[in-house]
Design a protein around this nucleic acid. Structure first.
Lengths: 189, 189
DNA sequence: ACACCTCTTGATCGCCATACAAGAGTGGTA
DNA sequence: TACCACTCTTGTATGGCGATCAAGAGGTGT
């Protein structure tokens, strides 16, 4: 065993720092949050962040991981609802972190690690959506349909629309997906 | 008439600076292009850019205006093609400036002028698309449909997909739009 | 000859992300 | 006890950035 026990405390401290970063990133945005402000929020010296987490992109990735894990956990509770409602829920749920969507896209190519995270994010979420759309759309078009839906959600997050307009987009999207309860075998209406 | 004749020369010089900025923004991206590098590209002192154009956001807006004007002019030549082809053309045409899409979204809220430009951009392009979709989709859903298409184009630009996948998304999108030649009154096939 | 305006510049400021090196605290060892 | 090794923390640079300022160069009108 090493001298000053590692692991436990280190993990906790890292989580505290990432939580502070998450608060500021969500509230003020990535660009408007300086590493100095982040350290101040967490009540540590500026360099301590680098010791526990890494550079600013590493902090962003850690924050995104936390947000994604939480979002996926919450999603489990509504995964059995109709697709239209799932879509609406997703958009409203992600609205709190909408500033980070454009940040990630803008920083792809500047940070290889972030690029990798972005790829993994899309693989994960698109996998879920693809599974949910199985049987609801033409199998040959499912990949394109998944991408259209994901792009629409991202667009709804990066653009300031009224809630009624957001709902209209979600509903129009879901309109061409056959709801599970209306799958072939049952007549509509 | 003022002393040292304004207007003509000033306009030319400004255009030169914006052209230089456009080259660098498109090639390296907005963040990776420093005002110093821009001045070097245009062979002027760093401050000269501020004199002719303004701060970095003003430069970005000027570049975006130039790109938009050129794009709209080019669009006129294909505006009579089928919607599916127009969509494909738009995505491929805008690919050269794809890095700027995320930049604009990321900087909204940091620059009021850019925010205004973004609003005007969407009003303009969505107006065009809405006119093109008149009669091709259910009138009550046309707003949502326009937004879905615009978000899809933006998504195709901010994400690195193969050409085949880009085409698949465009085709899937256009699949539910009735082509002008297939409008009610003529039987399909 | 003088005043005036446009344009250009070098020097400078403040902020930022990040690196460095020294120090404080703590556990193991002799 | 004294010493060392390791983890952690900090104060202090460093280099680059966007942006500003005050001074001057060069042409224009009176």
């Amino acid at each position: 065993m090493p001298s000053t026990r590692p692991g436990r405390d280190r993990e906790e401290k890292r989580t505290e720092l990432v939580d502070a970063a998450r608060r500021l990133f969500v509230q003020d945005g990535y660009d408007a949050t300086s590493m100095a402000a982040l350290a101040r929020e967490a009540r540590v010296a500026a360099n301590t962040v680098y010791w526990y987490v890494g550079d600013k992109d590493d902090v962003l990735i850690a924050v995104l991981d936390a947000l994604l894990a939480e979002g996926l956990a919450d999603y489990a509770s509504i995964a059995d609802r109709p697709l239209r409602e799932q879509l609406r829920w997703t958009v409203e749920r992600l609205r709190g972190m909408r500033r980070l969507v454009a940040t990630v896209h803008a920083r792809i190519g500047r940070s290889a690690a972030l690029d990798a995270w972005h790829d993994a994010f899309h693989a994960s979420t698109e996998g879920i959506l693809r599974a949910a759309l199985e049987g609801a759309v033409d199998p040959g078009a499912i990949d394109a349909e998944v991408r259209i839906a994901v792009f629409a959600v991202e667009g709804l997050l990066t653009h300031e629309l009224a809630e009624q307009e957001r709902r209209a987009v979600c509903d129009q999207l879901a309109a061409r997906w056959v709801a599970p309860e209306d799958r072939p075998g049952r007549p509509p209406g």
